[in-house]
Structures are given as C-alpha cells and as structure tokens.
Amino acid sequence: MFKISKYVFYDILRSKVIIAYTLFLLIISCGLFIFQNDISKSIISIMSIIMIIIPLVSIVFSTTYFYNGYEFIELLLAQPLSRRTIILGEFIGIAFSLVTAYLIGVGIPILIYAANATGTVIIISGIALTLTFISLAVLASVATRDKAKGIGISLMLWFYFSIIYDAIILGILFAFSDYPLDKAVIVLASLNPIDLGRIIILLKLDISALMGFTGAVYKEFFGSNFGLIYSISIMIVWIILPLSISIKIFKKKNL
C-alpha cells in the first residue's frame, strides 16, 4: 500500500503542479501576513481563501490525477493486490503530497506569524478539508469511467459545498425563521465540511459577534470539549465515508 503511495507521490512531484500550488499558497499567506498589520485580519483573509481554494484544488487535482493515472491503476490491478489496497494507496499518495503542500504553503507562515490556538485550528481544519475533498474526488472518479464526467462531478461537488449549500441554508433559515433552530443549525453545519471548518475557526476569532446572538449556541456547543471532539469526529467521518463508499464501488466495478 505504502509502496503505491510512494510511487504516486513521486509521480505527483514530477508534474510540477503541486510545486506551483505550494508556491501559490506560500506567496498568498506570506503576503497577507506581511502587508496587513493586524494579524487577526490576515488570519481571516487566509481563512476565506483556504475555504475556497483548498477544496477546489484538492478535488480537481485529485480527480485529474486519478484519471491520468488510470493505466497505472490498471497495471496494478493485474498484480496480486486487493482493490482496497490500490485505492487506499492512491488516496494516501495524493493526500500526502497535497497536505505537504498545504503545510509548507500555509502552515509555515502561520507558525511564524500566528502560532497560537487560532493558527492550530486553521492548520487542522485545512488538513481536514484537503483530505475530505480528496476523498470526495476519489468517489467522483470511481463513479464513472468518463474523465470529463468525473471532473464535472467533482466540480459540481465543490460548487455544491462552497456555494449552493449555504444558499440552501439561508432558504431553510428563512422558511423556518419562526421556529427555534438551535439544534438544527448545528446539524446543518455538520452536513458541510466547509461550514464546519469555518465555524470552528471563527469561534476562535469573531467570538464577540457570534456570542451576541445565536452565536451563543455555537459557542456553547463547539466551544466545549465535547463540541471539539464532535467536530473532529464529524470531520473524520467526512474523510472516511466517501472513501469507504468509493472502495465499495471500486471493488464491485467491472473494469
């Protein structure tokens, strides 16, 4: 399994895309820290960028890589290896390279300029988002053999999680605004890894505003130790669930 991951990692490194991605993240985060006097403001800007760029790059890059490396996968399938091992190997290889890129591009500047609880939360939720969207990409890739369709699905997934879902939430909140929604919003937040990550980071930053209103609900829930364990486990579920579904599909798939 790890041998496959190693080959995947070397292959990704050779393609230079990952290096460009690392440099891009590094320049953005360093730039935001250097040209912005207020650290908390730059953290917020970095967060906004992370919440859009990381899911997009992770999902599109992984899907493309998966399809481009399909011959390699087919070669591996001819070997005495279980399909589960192959998918996991691919996943770990892509994940390792993208997480490394993230840690160098965003992690290092944060460690230099804002090594505190907020920084830690940003790094952790960034890693979780990367893994989640790679996992979703694997799902999109095994779902169909057609490359264009696969990339289309993954783009649609990104679009759904980063834009459409929030609009749906607005609609739900508007429709049920006469009802107490304390528990519902926590469930709604858990159903989208991007929202979950954002709320956890914001609770470390914009507590004042969130505190004032229904934010007290979030603060009470996500701010507690239980909430922390809850959100971490939800994130892990978001990583594992699409991956295990794709393994299941891939096992039964007629190649």
Partner: peptide, 20 residues
C-alpha cells in the same frame, strides 16, 4: 440586514456565498 431578521444566519458568517 439578513442577520437582523434571521439571527441563526450568523452561522454563514464570512461564507463565500454571503460575500457574493
């Protein structure tokens, strides 16, 4: 204005959709 009318919408604070 939205948050004023629907306080629970604060969960979308700084979301990309809200920026748009």
């Amino acid at each position: 204005v939205i948050v004023e009318q629907m306080p629970y919408a604060v969960m979308l604070l700084r979301s990309f959709t809200v920026d748009l």
